[in-house]
Simulated scan of single mutants.
Amino acid sequence: MKNRPHFDPAHWPLAIASRSAGDETHLVMGDNVSRHRVCLRGLPAGHPIAWLIPCDALLDARLQALAALDRWLRGARRGAQMFGPTAYQARRLDLLLAILDLRRGGGVTSHMVARRLVYPRLSIGQGASWKSSPERRRTQRLIREAEALAAGGYRTLLAGRAGRQK
Rank of each mutant, 00 (worst) to 15 (best):
S133Q: 03
P48L: 05
R103W: 00
R37Q: 11
R92C: 00
G106D: 01
Y88Q: 12
V33T: 14
N32S: 13
R92K: 10
M1Q: 10
P13N: 07
K166F: 06
V28Y: 07
R37Y: 10
R164P: 12
G163D: 12
L158V: 12
Q81W: 04
A146G: 03
G75F: 01
I143C: 09
G84Q: 15
R155M: 12
A17M: 12
E145Y: 00
P134M: 01
R104N: 02
G30N: 08
A150H: 01
A61K: 14
A45E: 09
L93P: 00
V108E: 00
R103D: 00
S129E: 10
L40D: 02
I143N: 00
K166S: 14
W12T: 11
W12Q: 06
L27I: 07
D101L: 03
D101R: 11
N32Y: 05
S132T: 09
L122A: 08
R155Q: 13
M112L: 05
I143R: 03
A98S: 07
G46H: 02
R77E: 15
R77A: 15
R161N: 11
I16D: 12
Y119I: 02
P85S: 09
Q89M: 08
G125H: 02
M29H: 03
R137V: 06
S18T: 13
G153D: 04
P13K: 06
L117R: 01
H6Y: 06
A21Y: 02
Q140Y: 01
V38W: 12
R137M: 12
D101Y: 04
I143Q: 04
K131R: 13
R77M: 08
A21L: 08
D94A: 14
T139G: 06
P48M: 05
S34A: 14
L102W: 00
D23Q: 05
A159I: 03
S132D: 15
L96H: 01
A17E: 15
L158K: 05
L14H: 14
Y154A: 15
R78F: 04
L63D: 04
A114V: 02
